[in-house]
């Protein structure tokens, strides 16, 4: 794989994502989300005003787990199925793997820009308005959001390559989003009812690795509040993962697998396809 070709394609993807306003829209949405959650987060308790980082980040994490996968899937599908535009690109003396790697890298850079600008400006405002002492979880949350976006970008390539047509790919992307964000947990909980308590716990722990959204959720909560947030089940989970730090490391490595495997399958599929 020639890195110069990958960088050239990535640069163009980033330029296109910025000029098409995707990046600006998502940066604005992320920034607004941070400020709204921080300012109105305690409204139900009769208070209004900026909260500290810890509480804001915990609330943000829940919302980001819905939003980031959707953003990545939509951006990926839009980019990979640029109808009518890819014949010239694929007829150049470059490999199809380089094209895919360049596209995913460029889109990831665009999401990084949106994330840093949106969450960065939001974070700066919170830092000046509220208690900035507990900010450590915030950059970890941003990093986890980026990893989650990379996983779903990789899945979006797979969907786009497997579907071939834009309308079908958008439909399948929504199904993928629905499956991982909503349906998977229901499926696991339902499945766990079939087993005794010990087997059900093991089933739930193992099933954690089948859903990148759940992995980011657990890694985020571990980094924010430690294992105690999960109660007795969490203690067993931490024992299963080997402690907080080791648990986060295992989860991040597993998320890496979720990036690499769909990407490699996409390359394999694309190699045998007609453009």
């Amino acid at each position: 794989m020639e890195i110069s070709s990958v960088i050239t394609i990535a640069r163009q993807e980033l330029t296109v994502a910025i000029r098409n306003k995707w990046t600006i829209i998502f940066a604005s949405a992320f920034g607004a989300l941070v400020l709204v959650i921080s300012y109105f987060g305690t409204m139900t308790a009769g208070e209004i005003g900026f909260q500290g980082f810890n509480r804001t980040t915990a609330s943000l994490l829940s919302l980001a787990l819905y939003l980031i996968p959707l953003v990545a899937l939509m951006m990926g599908t839009q980019s990979f199925l640029n109808e009518g535009g890819d014949e010239m690109l694929y007829s150049q003396p470059i490999s199809r793997g380089e094209v895919l790697a360049g596209k995913i890298l460029g889109l990831f850079a665009a999401i990084m820009v949106a994330t840093f600008v949106g969450f960065g400006i939001g974070g700066l405002i919170i830092a000046t308005q509220a208690d900035a002492g507990d900010f450590i979880g915030y950059p970890v949350f941003v990093a986890l959001s980026l990893i989650l976006s990379l996983v779903f970008l990789s899945l979006s390539i797979l969907v786009a390559v497997a579907c071939g047509r834009k309308a079908k790919a958008y439909g399948v992307s929504l199904l993928v989003w629905f499956f991982f964000v909503i349906f998977y947990d229901l499926l696991v909980l339902g499945g766990s009812l079939l087993f005794n308590e010990r087997t059900a716990n093991q089933f739930i722990f193992v099933s954690l690795f089948g859903n990148p959204v759940d992995m980011v959720r657990v890694a985020g909560l571990l980094s924010l509040r430690g294992g105690e947030i999960f109660g007795a089940a969490g203690a067993a989970l931490l024992k299963f993962l080997g402690g907080e730090a080791q648990g986060i490391t295992i989860l991040v490595i597993s998320l890496g697998v979720w990036v690499i495997v769909p990407f490699l399958i996409s390359i394999r599929l694309l190699r045998t396809q007609d453009i």
């Binding site: 330029t15 296109v16 098409n20 890819d86 014949e87 003396p93």
Partner: peptide, 21 residues
Amino acid sequence: PRASRGSLSFLPQRVGFHDCL
């Protein structure tokens, strides 16, 4: 195929480039 493509240039029937470039 990569080396072979290095010797040629292809103009497809439908050319499509990013509108914003």
